[in-house]
């Protein structure tokens, strides 16, 4: 008769096979930490540019500075450049740490499960991006930061079905912060820094300790 341990091993193996073939599990916690730090730096740049401190201003925050051009860069150009840099650097860090983790574990990074997660992640993200561009065009600049949080959260909740389940809760937190932001528009950047900065760092550390 085969022993207890062997059956247990078979069951564990089956479970891992089901997980690995349906979910993208190479996502590294460190990529969250890196993205969070980059987002905080990006937010800090905005405060420096505006010459403001977090939690010090309300609605005047954005409108007051509309016609200022510090460092020879206009308000809009500066914001776009800052956001673009944060996005590119955070993505690069995410790709780097995730590929590194997959390589360490001897797994392929860009397999079917990765594609499935990315495509599910990108639907709410692309819709959100378009929505924010329209908000911006309509002059609803105060709503852009909270809207990015809401759509990013929705994207995480949607993508979480195809990756580590913890991502779902991160998504719910981001949505919550975004909704708070919609009702307190003057705090958009503060909430944005908490959502994209602090939450990513905390989540990244938790996931790193849990899985790596």
């Amino acid at each position: 008769m085969r022993n207890h341990n062997e059956h247990l091993e078979t069951l564990t193996e089956i479970r891992s096979m089901m997980e690995r073939s349906s979910r993208f599990i190479s996502l590294s916690g460190l990529s969250g930490v890196a993205a969070g730090i980059i987002a905080l730096l990006g937010a800090a740049m905005v405060y420096v540019y505006l010459g403001l401190r977090p939690f010090s201003n309300y609605r005047i925050f954005y409108t007051e500075v509309l016609d200022k051009g510090k460092w020879g860069i206009g308000y809009e150009a500066f914001f776009l450049m800052d956001a673009f840099l944060v996005l590119v650097l955070a993505l690069a860090a995410g790709i780097y740490f995730t590929s590194r983790k997959a390589k360490q574990k001897g797994q392929k990074v860009w397999d079917k499960s990765a594609l499935r997660m990315l495509s599910n992640l990108s639907i709410p993200l692309v819709v959100g991006g378009i929505f924010c561009l329209v908000l911006y065009r309509e002059g609803q600049i105060l709503l852009v930061a909270p809207a990015t949080l809401v759509f990013y959260g929705l994207a995480l909740v949607n993508g979480s079905k195809y990756t580590l389940n913890d991502i779902r809760y991160l998504g719910l937190f981001e949505i919550g912060l975004g909704i708070i932001g919609l009702f307190f528009p003057g705090y958009g950047l503060e909430l944005w820094a908490i959502g994209f900065g602090l939450l990513h760092i905390i989540y990244g550390l938790v996931m790193y300790r849990k899985y790596e």
């Binding site: 193996e13 089956i14 096979m17």
Partner: peptide, 13 residues
Amino acid sequence: RIRLGIMSMLMVN
């Protein structure tokens, strides 16, 4: 083991 592995993959895909 192998056939069980094949079936586990097919249960979730």
